[in-house]
């Protein structure tokens, strides 16, 4: 029986909100800590990491390619929580893609094989595809798009993901699922922080100033 006490306890607490402060652990340190897992768990973590890397895709991928990736992932992924994380992320991507097409007056894109796709196609001409009740973030997201505020729209997406994964995390304690959800939430932190170059540069300068002021570096 694999035990996760050491790994979970070695991971620093994530902030309460994803836009609340710096990332508490670097990518290199996180990789090093995750290397405590056994081979089987590392493979699952690799699947999660690969998915997130793919999720940061360049925009020139075709709908058919995305659909094929979804099919491949559904066939490959065996861990129920990882499947749930991927499913939830695909649903959000699909909604965002559908909204963009709808606003641009384009026909519905080629969707992955998900039950939600049928619903969206059936309600294509209706505002927010009549999904406001099921996806509460959708109205706020649409409003941000209408206000030409892409960063705010992204913030709403990340807030939904962050809250969903934080709620899931509350169900687990010192288990592999906690590790997966930690990685998923760390990914949001990292993506959000990567978007804010100006703030990153300011923080770096502040850190350098702090070190120089306290004499932390001996030349």
């Amino acid at each position: 029986m694999q035990s996760y006490y050491t790994l979970i306890a070695s991971l620093p607490q994530l902030p309460r909100e994803f836009d609340d402060g710096p990332i508490p652990i670097s990518a290199a340190t996180l990789r090093h800590r995750v290397s405590m897992l056994d081979h089987h768990d590392r493979q699952i973590v690799q699947q999660v990491s690969d998915f997130f890397r793919w999720d940061r895709q360049p925009r020139d991928r075709s709908d058919v390619e995305i659909r094929e990736t979804h099919r491949r992932l559904v066939a490959e992924i065996r861990h129920p929580l990882v499947a749930q994380v991927v499913h939830h992320r695909f649903e959000m991507r699909m909604l965002v893609a559908a909204l963009r097409c709808q606003r641009g007056g384009l026909p519905p894109p080629v969707f992955p094989d998900l039950p939600l796709a049928v619903w969206i196609q059936r309600h294509w001409d209706e505002p927010c595809f009549r999904l406001n009740e099921r996806f509460h973030w959708l109205a706020r997201f649409c409003q941000a798009i209408e206000d030409h505020q892409p960063r705010r729209a992204q913030w709403h997406l990340f807030t939904e993901l962050w809250n969903h994964w934080s709620r899931l995390n509350d169900q687990y304690n010192f288990s592999f699922e906690s590790v997966v959800l930690y990685l998923a939430r760390w990914e949001i932190l990292h993506r959000w922080a990567s978007q804010n170059e100006q703030r990153g540069r300011q923080r770096f300068n502040d850190l350098v100033d702090d070190i120089l002021r306290t004499g932390g570096v001996n030349c």
């Binding site: 035990s3 006490y5 050491t6 790994l7 306890a9 070695s10 991971l11 620093p12 800590r33 010192f174």
Partner: peptide, 14 residues
Amino acid sequence: CAAGGQAACGAMLD
């Protein structure tokens, strides 16, 4: 003790 000890070892890294 194994559960507590492992958690303590992990926490000491942080």
